[in-house]
Design a binder for these strands. Structure first.
Lengths: 224, 224
DNA sequence: CGACCTCTTGAATGAACTCAACAAAAGTGG
DNA sequence: CCACTTTTGTTGAGTTCATTCAAGAGGTCG
């Protein structure tokens, strides 16, 4: 968690203060929930390993997958404002999680300016990424959305030291479809097409990006 | 700006500190930019009056409207993380703006915990709203997106003490379309349909919500 | 091995798009 | 203040892309 919250220079004694705050790692199994939509907000979480899925149920009872969370990422920051968790977040595979009391974290922030700065940056990143996702999902074809999604996963894995070109999709086609505003059928057809076009290699849930440049070209190109 | 940043109890002396930070109000004319996409991040802004439009230019040179900003709202928080403004933001009408140096603001936050808490809440709100917008734009028909948009504007105007049912659209049909991932033609056709169905009354850029319940029903209903 | 769930494939439908033309409003200059 | 230009908004017809609906294949786990 130290690595997640503070790549910036923080004094050793401060790091100790921070680590006192972090509650013991917890292991979750597939479908175990961290929190439910509507539950009172109190903690933020960091993914140590495994993958999580956040989804909202809207007025009509439709599920919409709002985000996937990979190792090294923070979960729950969107709950600060409404003071309730705005999604239900579950483990997609066996996963390990750290937790941190939000009130204690903000108190610590007042005495460690670098920590405050970092927390604000992490919140801002979520806004930034969400705006970008919104823009990408708006004007683009289904193929472009899916290519963006794969590209995004790749970048995030790379950032955390995993392979950028070969990884497992912990989520179902249905989950991907919901996240991108498509149907599972469309996702399936597009993955097949990408494979046929030599952009990727996919076998069940294991994917290899064979031509990352081609994927990027697809995202940028007029015809999806 | 005091009202914007701190509805929470902050000591009077602290308010004075904060107000020292706020730089003089500035009046902008139509199309005047607050900042350009890519420019170095340094200040956050609060809308005193008027309307602003934030838009990004993507790789291919397509403009996408990421947000509209109404009186009482903060602008620029998505620039913290990348340390550059991630959109170009311009005035859609004659508008008045306050600005505030971000570094000074965060410094003040370390000595005023309530201010820090409020700043974090405002950042979280942007994440929350953006996730919600993403969910609404994903699975819904064009009519539902537009109804959501009108409803959203209405709520925001009401929150700030303006009329919830009668207001001017400072933005063009093109801007609305870009924001919602539609075409101007579709927006035009839908507004006509809403008017015909008695949901709204619209004359050029002045709109009246005649049947807010009907709009909400449309958003929730299966057939857009 | 059988039941269940996820994923894939096919054919037909439909919602929003593109393209094109026109109308109305706003801005400009004599 | 009026004619002219430019921008913005509206309307129509045809097309396309992703969807819906339906059925079958593949994987997983008791």
């Amino acid at each position: 968690m130290s690595q997640i919250c503070l790549p910036l220079g923080i004094a050793k004694t401060d790091v100790e203060l921070l680590e006192n705050l972090i509650q013991s790692s917890e292991t979750l199994q597939v479908n175990d929930a961290i929190f439910q939509q509507g539950e009172r907000f109190s903690k933020v979480y960091a993914v140590k390993s495994g993958t999580f899925k956040s989804s909202r149920i809207d007025g009509q009872g439709n599920e919409h997958v709002t985000a996937f969370h990979l190792p090294g990422e923070l979960i729950g920051l969107d709950g600060i404002y409404p003071d309730t968790y705005s999604s239900t977040t579950i483990a997609l595979d066996t996963a390990v999680l750290c937790s941190m009391d939000y009130d204690e974290l903000t108190q610590l922030c007042t005495s460690i300016p670098a920590l405050q700065r970092q927390l604000l940056r992490l919140l801002s990143r979520d806004i930034y990424e969400s705006y970008k996702a919104n823009a990408e999902n708006a004007d683009h074809t289904a193929a472009q959305k899916l290519a963006s999604f794969l590209n995004n996963l790749s970048t995030r894995y790379e950032l955390r030291g995993y392979s950028a070109l070969s990884f497992n999709l912990a989520m179902s086609r249905q989950d991907i479809a919901s996240h991108l505003g498509l149907t599972p059928e469309t996702v399936s057809r597009l993955l097949k097409r990408f494979k046929h076009d030599g952009l990727i290699d996919i076998e069940n849930r294991h994917i290899e990006l064979k031509d990352a440049g081609g994927l990027n070209a697809l995202i940028a190109c007029a015809n999806g």
